[in-house]
Design a protein around this nucleic acid. Sequence first.
DNA 1: TGATTTTGTCGAAGCGCTTCGACAACTGCC
DNA 2: GGCAGTTGTCGAAGCGCTTCGACAAAATCA
Lengths: 338, 338
Amino acid sequence: MPTINDVARAAGVSPSTVSYVLSGRRPISAETRARVQAAIAELGFHPHAGARALASSKTNVLALVAPLRVDVNVPVIMQFATAVVTAARSFNHDVLLLTKDEGTAGLERVAHSTMVDALILMDIERDDVRLPAIRTLKQPSVLIGLPADHAGIACVDLDFEAAAALALRHLAGHGHRRIGLIGASPAVYRRQTTYADRFLAGFLRASHELELRTTTHPCEPGADGVRAALADLDTALPGLTALVVHNEEALRPLLDLLHAAGRRVPEDVSIVAVCPRDVATAMPVDLTSIDIPAHDVGTIAVETAMRLLDNRRVDFTRLLEPRLVERDSCREISPSHR
Amino acid sequence: MPTINDVARAAGVSPSTVSYVLSGRRPISAETRARVQAAIAELGFHPHAGARALASSKTNVLALVAPLRVDVNVPVIMQFATAVVTAARSFNHDVLLLTKDEGTAGLERVAHSTMVDALILMDIERDDVRLPAIRTLKQPSVLIGLPADHAGIACVDLDFEAAAALALRHLAGHGHRRIGLIGASPAVYRRQTTYADRFLAGFLRASHELELRTTTHPCEPGADGVRAALADLDTALPGLTALVVHNEEALRPLLDLLHAAGRRVPEDVSIVAVCPRDVATAMPVDLTSIDIPAHDVGTIAVETAMRLLDNRRVDFTRLLEPRLVERDSCREISPSHR
DNA sequence: TGATTTTGTCGAAGCGCTTCGACAACTGCC
DNA sequence: GGCAGTTGTCGAAGCGCTTCGACAAAATCA
């Protein structure tokens, strides 16, 4: 492996000049620059990351803390991760992958040992135990999610409260008055994962404001969980005409179940799903949905981290406006059914 | 951030002594060790990763090259990634996540700049363009998959040829003689992704040896793709009594389709799936399946990398024996149907 | 008891890079 | 023509750690 000294010798300059060619931090004449670059190319020189980190206190690495348990939502998590890695590369950074299981220890390990410049955390809970920890780190963090006490911490996410309101407004606009919510799995609520909490809060508030009859139910994974949830909703709110589904896993079994029961979508039941676009369109009925913009959220998270590293201004709370795409799962309800 | 010098001063020893306490490479008296460890704990000292990498030429980081496009198989990829990260941590290593999209450039970047000690590559193609590249790296690589020319490269995977044979033997043992294969998506075969290739090869060979009537068909994603594949299989081999499915995505639509057509599983059609256990048991019918042992494969890949780093012996080709678990999707066929 | 090995610690060199200060050679301006 | 500012380059220090050789003290052996 050639070093910067080898390059310097080959180009007939000092090592510092090579460094300045690389970083552009000082003016270098065109001829010298060309000679240096030729030497770099010829020797196949790549700066040693460790040496660079030691001298400059920058690693050009971001930590991504992902919930790697094989949980619900795997494809969505993957979308976030993909977006983060791609965006990081566009800023010439790499991504170190941590699991959420490691908890606080993992964060502190990579931060204290100066392996990363900044951290991006997913799957944030309402009172996430990691929050106190990241507040003490010298590296900046960006959360994908919105915990209760987020003062001074950069957060990015879809505005799930607004999303719930949007779903209800859409259905109300189509004449629906009795609407059920199929929520995330109980485990997700138990952890108080913020997107689920916030969606539910928005749902309840909008339901009240729009004067709708609604009921909500979490939903265990698997067909049986969906069956139970649906039964409970039907009991609590007989004659409901629409469902909001905030649970990717449940969509498929739900449609199967409705089909088996002879309840047509959208003729008998309208559905608004909250899920990635490709999930919505991979169902037997193309679902009217509110997209989870994983790509945008991941990209913005990285951009925010970069701005923080440059000491530039950032919006500490960045909630993306939800967008509803009409497809084939909602229909105008006739006044007689209202 | 305290440095090793701060620790040394606090403990009243030299920095090298602290280093030896940390690494255990030289004997240190119990009292000294205790003093040093107390100082480390009190100051909250964490060695600087870059400095360490520079001095020792070890980073304690593994690169994981994953196909992060949102493709088929997302949950399976996640299982591999989880296993790799967990196993890496158990060897005190972290994982740098690269996307396959970056191709050869990504590998060379992290290897040449000495960011990682070893690399683990997923989604290997028959004549993978990355192979020549990794052969030139000073860091060892471990492949999850088995390319055509794997001489001198460590490879770990399920033995997909044996898996295909096992599936056919199982069905033949139940009296089936006319069997169709629903394969991966055409894109996967086009790329000559090795697991698909090898499964197909094993299927054809075993079919011949067992003197079965078989036909095979790739399967586009989505319900329409499955419908087309099934129609083609029925045309090519009328009266088939069993299906082998090597395509997680296709399973659900396939079962729906069979159900809609009034073909019962297993009464009218037996099925053997090749997929992770949890996928097999999440279907309307619990599927007899051959597990894709993502966890074991990922763990072994990391172990192999570690052995390579220690210059210990490794099996360069490690193909895990497939295991078939009987569930509810296969049945003995009556002689009259044979 | 003297020679030899083992144990425990230290000092210094060096890993490969960035960055600061210095300085020579120009350029522009009154 | 003299002074101030640019431009372009160099040398040296230093980032925080590991590791090698040295060496004193203690343990082992003949």
